[in-house]
Design a protein around this nucleic acid. Structure first.
Lengths: 159, 159
DNA sequence: CCAAGACATGACGTTAACGTCAAGGTCAGA
DNA sequence: TCTGACCTTGACGTTAACGTCATGTCTTGG
């Protein structure tokens, strides 16, 4: 493992700041704080393939972008709101990633028309599956809440 | 620990079947199957004080009633729907139990008026706390669903 | 250039919520 | 009465999602 020479063959190296869009990047400490999770959690998510920091310093330190933080928020949302485990979350995220790719390919016409339609259908199905479970959860919660309100009303009536 | 003599001083022992209401009782195997959980889970819930089978055979085998099964269902609901852990669930259940007791005491006037009002207020507060968290969850899920629907619409529009 | 944080990569520890196995008791029916 | 299915308690195992070191590296202000 040789430390890559800084400024050497920088052709493919991810630029630190694309001059136009001033993308602020954070170290793992700040990123974790902003995302409301631990550094360990961020490394763990990465280990499971849920996120990859959008950059590394030449020395190997992780650099997180705003989008990365949004992704972490999404993970937490799927975790706490829907109760999915990290493996299930990986599936959802992979699907969303593919959709984003398809959207790009759609504009640049990099893939064949048939391929895109195929991928689109597949993604749509996955999204609809997710929708079904979420909808079920919603109605269940609604029932729970109605029940709870009834209990509260009964309790109030005793006062 | 002496095995309690069967048929001894049975004055306070829970009757097996109150002659009027034909309460069917189940062994732990059937109970677990009906509740959709494992036998181990039932024993574990009992260990944590979440449920107590409403009876035991003279030999010590657990007997679960319909109400017990409903209670297990409630546990599962709080677990999967709200994401509470078993300790938090214990709090909720204890509160609900107390409310039920209060209702009984209310009719039979076993406690002082002041005591009952005090307990009622306390229970009401707990219920309202729960309501707040549930309501938060509901609106969060609603937002999630709206967002998901928007994504689905966008995906559809690409087809 | 150099010290003080911040960070990287293992590797082992922890907690909740059970799973599983062992060594026996209990019960209902033939 | 006796067998086979069901059940008991106790103890140890398991899995997910991290927590917590230990040890060495990177980065940055002075």
């Amino acid at each position: 493992m040789s430390t890559p020479a800084r400024g050497g063959t920088a052709a493919l190296a991810p630029r630190d700041q694309p001059p136009g869009s001033r993308e602020r990047l954070f170290g793992i400490g700040v990123a974790a704080a902003r995302a409301g999770v631990s550094e360990r959690a961020l490394r763990y998510y990465q280990q499971l393939g849920l996120i990859t920091p959008s950059g590394r310093t030449p020395g190997g330190l992780r650099r997180y972008s705003q989008d990365d933080l949004a992704r972490v928020a999404r993970i937490r949302q799927l975790q706490t709101l829907l109760g999915l485990n990290l493996d299930e979350i990986a599936v959802v995220l992979r699907n969303e990633d593919r959709l984003a790719e398809i959207r790009l390919a759609y504009h640049r016409q990099l893939t064949s028309d048939a391929d895109r339609r195929e991928l689109l259908r597949e993604s749509l199905t996955l999204q609809q599956d997710l929708r079904v479970t979420v909808e079920a959860k919603r109605s269940a919660i609604e029932g729970f809440l109605a029940d709870l309100d009834a209990r509260i009303a009964r309790t109030r009536s005793l006062l």
